[in-house]
Design a protein around this nucleic acid. Structure first.
Lengths: 384, 384
DNA sequence: TCTATTTATTCGGTCGCCTGACGAATCAAT
DNA sequence: ATTGATTCGTCAGGCGACCGAATAAATAGA
């Protein structure tokens, strides 16, 4: 099924560089491709001919208006393959479909099946299938699938090892089951890591080699991008900053169980602190506390400030450890501009040197966009 | 001066892989090299002939005892080039000389010139020159030099930006001055980063892709090795964990100045804590406090325990952030087995998952060994 | 001495790339 | 409409690097 016998190393390199050029300067002629890649015109023609026969590229017209002979323009063909990005959140399931050039063809979401586990996987398969068919893409055309999930993902096996928010996900062989249901290779990756990669691909962290992505929502987590690479850690547990010894005694029972920092700034932690401070027990979401703080409730304001202070301490910890160029704040709480401002203000007093801070621009789409970007890279790597 | 016109990409790759094989399986025949690298015997002969003409390899004998024709054995020639590793500590200056194969030919050390700055650079030049001449190596043969220094080293310019321990180093163009004095390209790198690379090359962290090296001596610092790469950070300030918000109020004046954690577990911090607790003011070194603790001084023991506790908190922070496979404890305090034990015991209660802990095996040689390893890699990269 | 075995070289043959020459297609000016 | 300048794409020749097969050389063991 693959290309003819096998191309030599050097041809492989040429193909790859032509492909990259094609990816970034979409409608482009052979002559320009030759200039951009540094290859000769003939080599260019050979590679493009091969691509065309393979169905990877197709003609889209000709140049006009310039002096000299017109050139045929090429672009990556949708026939080249499709990928699927999936964000499996505790409350919402999002699926997106893109072609080999990274053009997002469609996106759909539903509330996550609350029964979790196998039901969620079935739901993913159904939604993915529908998305593909609605876009005239036969599911067999999908060549790579990436799933964003909460929890610690083993970087070697792809097993999900700690996913408290979705019941019964840890015991399933997700890669195998989902791969069988959908008929394509599946990769599983932590949702925060993928949100980070999403921001790097199409969000607020483009063209930066050292990024820290601090997500604060129902839980707290961190994505690290260092030397232009994602940091997974030996067990996939890098960025589990819920366990940072910040905001209390790290040896206390609750702190050891769910993590010291998480116990304070996780959604339940914030609500608990508000109630312990004497706030009304009818409040049961962080959003409400923020609203009350804005409405003048000084108790709520204090809770918000303390949350920002602890978040800033966590950020300072990360900055001191890996020295990123950019800190991105994300998650339903972290991405709030008012909250980010508070964090930035505390951080100014803490950090030995100032670091640029931005809030996520992709919001809750970051995960699925990141999943697409990884699926695309896998597709590209496989093609060469 | 470089090799003939220029080898093509594919030849370059072949040369490199032959070189690597030569590096690891020292005396080896062409036939075996061909098997190891997967290249054909003829290509092998071409590459080896070129290497021999270039002076990179030389014959060292023939095989014997086996059936069949004897094979000529080759190894990397010392003529291929030499490198220098230098560890400029606040109190001790160490220099080591190695050949292109990584064989350490000589090592020498002296107390650092306490006048610092330009005097220290002169001292380096003198000691390096002597070391080279004593080993019948003309200084011009030295093709790469790496200097380990405390402080933050700008990863782009090589400028030393914060070096409180050696006076007047920050204002000097060390790369330029030292390069001129010694006549070879100089690279500057943080001493803890190099100690980490030393342990990875020839110490206790070999063949591990994710390592954290926590150094506790006169100061506290961290070296990070992630995905098989050193983490420098955007400004070279990765691993500056003296500024972690651990062990006190991070907004306090002293903490902001020299770092919150450093203020507590740095050498002066430990001594200060002992005195504040009522210990004798005649004590002025950490070593003495450890000795007193062992002799039964409960005040000293408490100070040691608290130091270990804070160090464990820092370690837990790093582990939660980057999830290393291995934690190496180094530095004059950190490498003490008794201290490392205490840290490990606290860490067991803190960490969500256990991490292997080792103490540095290279001790105070780690920096210079790491400098050699980087200098060697530079030499190899330049040669191809 | 002879044979099996292993090492190294020589001799084509292939692949990928480049350069230079040339035909094809276009715009602009006469 | 013709001519010239310009650009696109192909063709042919040559080079560098690789491999496989055949061959020469050297050695251990029978």
């Amino acid at each position: 099924m693959s290309s003819p016998p096998m191309a030599s190393v050097t041809r492989q390199l040429s193909r790859r560089s032509v492909f990259e050029a094609l990816l970034h300067r979409s409608p482009i002629s052979r002559a320009d491709l030759a200039k951009v890649t540094g290859l000769s015109k003939q080599t260019m023609s050979e590679v493009i001919d091969a691509f065309e026969q393979q169905g990877l590229v197709h003609q889209v017209g000709r140049t006009s208006g310039n002096v000299g002979r017109t050139a045929v323009l090429y672009e990556l063909s949708p026939e080249g393959g499709h990928v699927l990005g999936i964000d499996l959140g505790a409350r919402r399931l999002t699926v997106a479909l893109a072609d080999i050039a990274g053009r997002v063809l469609a996106e759909a979401d539903e509330p996550t099946d609350s029964r979790g586990g196998a039901w969620a996987l079935d739901q993913i398969a159904r939604l993915s299938d529908r998305l593909a068919r609605d876009n005239h893409t036969h599911p067999s055309r999908i060549r790579s699938i990436v799933l964003a999930t909460p929890g610690v993902v083993n970087p070697r096996s792809g097993a999900i090892e700690m996913a408290p928010n979705i019941t019964g996900l840890g015991h399933l062989n997700v890669v195998g089951l989902l791969g069988e249901k959908l008929g394509s290779p599946v990769t599983v990756e932590n949702d925060i890591n993928l949100a980070l990669l999403g921001e790097i691909w199409h969000g607020c962290a483009q063209n930066v080699a050292n990024v820290a992505f601090l997500a604060l929502g129902s839980g707290v987590g961190l994505g690290l991008y260092v030397n232009g690479q994602l940091v997974r850690g030996e067990n996939g547990a890098a960025g589990e900053i819920g366990y940072l010894p910040i905001g209390g005694d790290p040896l206390q029972a609750e702190a050891r169980l769910q993590g010291c920092l998480e116990y304070q700034v996780g959604a339940t932690g914030v609500v608990r602190r508000y109630r312990e401070a004497g706030g009304g027990s009818e409040v049961d979401s962080v959003r409400q506390i923020f609203e009350r703080a804005q409405a003048g409730d000084s108790l709520a304001a204090d809770v918000v400030d303390e949350t920002a202070r602890l978040t800033a301490l966590a950020a300072a910890t990360v900055i001191a450890t890996v020295d990123p160029q950019l800190l991105v704040l994300g998650g339903s709480v972290g991405a709030r501009p008012d909250f980010a401002d508070k964090v930035a203000r505390v951080l100014l007093q803490l950090a030995s040197r100032p670091v640029e801070i931005r809030t996520s621009t992709l919001g809750n789409r970051a995960g699925v966009v990141g999943a697409l970007s990884v699926a695309l890279r896998r597709l590209h790597d496989d093609a060469f």
